[in-house]
Nucleic acid binder design. Structure first.
Length: 400
DNA sequence: CATCCGTGGAG
DNA sequence: TCTCCAAGGAT
C-alpha cells in the first residue's frame, strides 16, 4: 500500500484495498511503504544521470509523445527514431495529420510494420479535431478512447506529457517489477497482470508525492522503462550497475534468469509465396492490398501463396509461377530474387520473377496498375515487396 | 483468453 | 541460421 492517496482511477472504484506483494523467495519483503519511497527515489536519481537523449524527450508536446508511443509499440527505439523525426517534420500537429492524404501516412510508416497503427493515428487525429477542438485531451478517459491507444499507451501519454500519476506496464516494466519483487507466474495471465498494474500504480503514486522533484510521475515512468531497456535487460542484465539492486528479490534469490516467466510461444509456421512482376515499356504491374486485411492500402506485386509440394516446385519454375499468378498469358518470366522474412509467427519465403509481356498482354486487363520505377518509389510497400523493388533493373528508392 | 498484426536488432 | 523480443492493441 502506498503512502500517498491513490489518484482517481475509474477502473477501481470502492475502498482502497491494501495490496500485497508476493515474493516467492523465502525472505519477507521490507515495509512496502518505505520500500516504494526508496525505490522511486533511487530510480529517479538514476534516471537524472543515465537517461538517453531521445528526440521525443526534448518535447512535452502531447501530440509528439503520442506519435512516439504508437511507433514504439512492439518496435525498438533505434528503429523508431528516424521515423519519428520524419513524421514530425511532415505532420507536426494533429491538424496536419488529420488533413493528410492516407498515402502520406502510409509512406511515412513504410517499413515500420503493424500498419494499422499509422491508420489509427490518423483516425485519432481526426477525433482530436472534431471532438477536442484540435487540442490534445488531458483527460485520461479521453486519451484512452483514442483509436490505437490502450491501457499502456494512455498511461504513458498521461504521465509523460501531462505528469499525471498514471501507471504504465510494458515489456520493460513487467521485467523490472517481476524481478525486483520476485513475482512469478505468467505476467500476461489476469491475476499476475493486475498485480503488476497495481504495483506500477503504487510506485508512480509514491514517486509523485510531496517531496518529489518536478515532473516526477513523468520521470519515474520513463525511468522504469529505461532501467528495463538499459540495465534490467532480458539477457545478460547488468545487475552490478543497477540502482536498486540491493532490494531486488530476484537477485537475492538468484532467479534473475527465471523472471519474468515466459510462456512458450506458438511454433513458427513456414509459408511460401511466389510473386510475378509483369514488365512492359519500362513499367511494372502493382496492385493495392484491399482494405480490412493485412497491410491494408499498401501496394504489392502480383503474388500467390502455395502450400505443400507445389510451393517449392512452383517457386523454382518461372513459367509455372507466371501461369499460376497471372493466368495463361504469354510472357517471358525470369528469376529475380528470393526474399525471406518473418511476419509474426510465420516464416515466409517469397520467390519473385520478372515477366516481360507483349503489348497485347499489357493491353489486356491484368489486375493492377502500371508504374515506372520512379512512381514505384512514391508508393508504399510492405518490406518484402519493397526489397523486390530494389532488385528491379532500375531500383526505385523510397523518397519522403 | 487466444490470436493476429510487421519488422529489425541482438546474440 | 535461428530464436527471442521490442515504450501493445484490437478482436
Amino acid at each position: 500500500m502506498a503512502a500517498a492517496p491513490t489518484p482517481p482511477t475509474p477502473k477501481r472504484p470502492g475502498k482502497p484495498k491494501p495490496r500485497r506483494i508476493r515474493p516467492t523467495g523465502d525472505t519477507p519483503p521490507p515495509s512496502p511503504v518505505r520500500h516504494y519511497a526508496d525505490f522511486t527515489a533511487a530510480l529517479l536519481a538514476w534516471f537524472q544521470t543515465g537517461a538517453r537523449d531521445l528526440p521525443w524527450r526534448r518535447t512535452r508536446d502531447p501530440y509528439a509523445i503520442w506519435v512516439s508511443e504508437i511507433m514504439l509499440q512492439q518496435t525498438q527505439v533505434k528503429t523508431v527514431i528516424p521515423y519519428w523525426e520524419r513524421w514530425m517534420q511532415h505532420l507536426p500537429t494533429p491538424g496536419a495529420l488529420a488533413a493528410a492524404a492516407p498515402e502520406t501516412v502510409h509512406k511515412l510508416w513504410e517499413g515500420l510494420g503493424y500498419y494499422s497503427r499509422g491508420r489509427r493515428l490518423q483516425e485519432g487525429a481526426r477525433v482530436i479535431q472534431t471532438e477536442h477542438g484540435g487540442v490534445f485531451p488531458h483527460d485520461f478517459a479521453a486519451i484512452l478512447a483514442l483509436p490505437g491507444v490502450g491501457r499502456y499507451t494512455a498511461g504513458a501519454i498521461a504521465s509523460i506529457a501531462f505528469n499525471q500519476p498514471r501507471p504504465i506496464l510494458d515489456g520493460n516494466v513487467i521485467r523490472v517489477l517481476a524481478r525486483h519483487y520476485g513475482i512469478a507466474g505468467n505476467p500476461r495471465a489476469r491475476a499476475v497482470n493486475e498485480t503488476l498494474w497495481s504495483l506500477a500504480q503504487d510506485l508512480v503514486t509514491t514517486a509523485a508525492t510531496a517531496s518529489a522533484p518536478p515532473r516526477a510521475a513523468s520521470a519515474f515512468n520513463q525511468a522504469l522503462m529505461e532501467l528495463g531497456a538499459l540495465v534490467c535487460t532480458p539477457r545478460q542484465p547488468q545487475c552490478p550497475s543497477c540502482p536498486v539492486r540491493a532490494a531486488c528479490v530476484a537477485r537475492r534469490t538468484n532467479r534473475v534468469g527465471e523472471l519474468p516467466a515466459t510462456p512458450p510461444r506458438p511454433e513458427a509456421t513456414k509459408r511460401w509465396f511466389v510473386a510475378v512482376i509483369p514488365e512492359w515499356a519500362g513499367r511494372y504491374l502493382v496492385r493495392r492490398r484491399p482494405e480490412g486485411g493485412v497491410n491494408a492500402g499498401l501496394w504489392e506485386f502480383p503474388n500467390l501463396e502455395f502450400t505443400g509440394a507445389a510451393a517449392t516446385s512452383t517457386g523454382a519454375d518461372p513459367v509455372a509461377a507466371a501461369r499460376a499468378v497471372l493466368g495463361p498469358v504469354p510472357c517471358a518470366p525470369t528469376p529475380l530474387a528470393t526474399v525471406r522474412h518473418s511476419i509474426t509467427r510465420y516464416r515466409i519465403t517469397l520467390t519473385a520473377h520478372r515477366a516481360v509481356v507483349t503489348d497485347a498482354v499489357a493491353a489486356a486487363a491484368l489486375p493492377g496498375e502500371w508504374r515506372t520505377p520512379a512512381e514505384l518509389a512514391a508508393l508504399s510497400f510492405p518490406s518484402a515487396h519493397r526489397k523486390l523493388c530494389d532488385r528491379l533493373p532500375h531500383p526505385a528508392r523510397p523518397t519522403v
